[in-house]
Design a protein around this nucleic acid. Structure first.
Lengths: 148, 148
DNA sequence: TATTGTTATACTCTATAACTATA
DNA sequence: TATAGTTATAGAGTATAACAATA
C-alpha cells in the first residue's frame, strides 16, 4: 500500500499508534475506549451520557459497558442530575484523574518518540493540521458518525 | 474530545475521511476493503495472496472474501504461479483498472476539497509527514498488525 | 514436514429495537 | 407523548484452528 490515498495513510498510521499505546493501556487495565472516555472527562465532567457519547464518537449504547467497568473500578461516578433526574452526570473520581494523568504522560512520551527528530514544532504543526482538517470535514457536512 | 492526543485526532479524521468517501465506493458497488485491495493492486500485481494481505494490512483469511467478490465481478483474476502452484498471483483485469481509476479520481477530488484553502503544497507536506511517521513507527518496532 | 490458500467453528462486536424511569 | 438511560436480541464481523493441495 504505497499509494498516497489519504485514508490509507491515516488508517495505517492509526494502527501504528494503537500498537504503540496498547501496552500502556493494558498495564493500566484499560481498554481503548475506556481511555477515550476517561480522557474526554479530563477537561470537565459530562452533563449527560448522550453528550459524552457524542464527544467521544462512541455509540451511546456501547458507552454503557465502558462506564459500568470504569465505575466499578472507582474511576468515574454517575450521579443523577437533580434538575432532570433522567440525566446522569458523569465525572472522574480522584482515582480516575490519577490514572488518566499517568496514562496520558506515558502516551505523550510515546508520541514524542514517534516524531523523534522532527521535534516539537513539527509535531504541533502536524496536529494543528489534523484539527483543521477535522473542522473542514465538519463544515463540508461529512458527518463524524459514532463508530466502534 | 478536544484533547490533543494524537490517536484521538487520527481516529476522528479517519472517520471524517471514511464518511466522505463511502458514498463514492457505494456507487461503485465496492466495500471499503475491496477498494483497499484494488488500490494495492494498482501499482502492480501481487505475487501471492499472503503478500497482498501484508501490504494491505488485512488478515489473510478475511482477504479471501474480498477476492472472491472482486473476481466474481471480473475486476481481478487469481492464477496459480507455474513455478510454485501453491501460490496464486492476483492481478487487476482491465475492468478492474478502469473502476479503480474512476474511484481514485473521485476520491482524490474529495481529498482536495477537504484540504481546501490549504492547497496542494500543504497537502503534500502533510502526507509526507504521515509517511514519515509510519516509517518511524516501523523503525521503533511498533508492529502494524492486520486489522478488520 | 512445511507452506499457501481455503473452510469451519466459536466467539465477539455491532445495530436495532424494546423497555424503565422520568419529564 | 417524548427523552435519557438501559437491556435484549439478531445479525455481522473476527480469531482460531483444522483442512486440502503442493512443495
Amino acid at each position: 500500500m504505497q499509494s498516497a490515498d489519504l485514508g490509507f495513510l491515516l488508517a495505517r498510521l492509526l494502527r501504528v499508534v494503537i500498537a504503540a499505546e496498547e501496552p500502556i493501556l493494558e498495564r493500566a487495565g484499560l481498554q481503548m475506549w475506556d481511555y477515550v472516555v476517561l480522557a474526554a472527562l479530563g477537561d470537565g465532567h459530562a452533563p449527560t451520557q448522550a453528550h459524552l457519547a457524542t464527544v467521544t464518537g462512541r455509540d451511546k449504547t456501547r458507552l454503557i459497558g465502558n462506564l459500568d467497568r470504569l465505575e466499578q473500578r472507582g474511576l468515574v461516578v454517575r450521579t443523577p442530575d437533580p434538575r432532570d433526574r433522567r440525566n446522569r452526570v458523569v465525572a472522574l473520581t480522584s482515582q480516575g484523574k490519577t490514572l488518566l494523568r499517568r496514562c496520558r504522560t506515558a502516551i505523550r512520551a510515546r508520541e514524542a518518540e514517534l516524531f523523534g527528530e522532527l521535534g516539537q514544532a513539527d509535531q504541533a504543526a502536524f496536529e494543528q493540521t489534523l484539527v483543521h482538517l477535522i473542522a473542514s470535514g465538519r463544515n463540508l457536512g461529512w458527518a463524524d458518525r459514532p463508530e466502534g
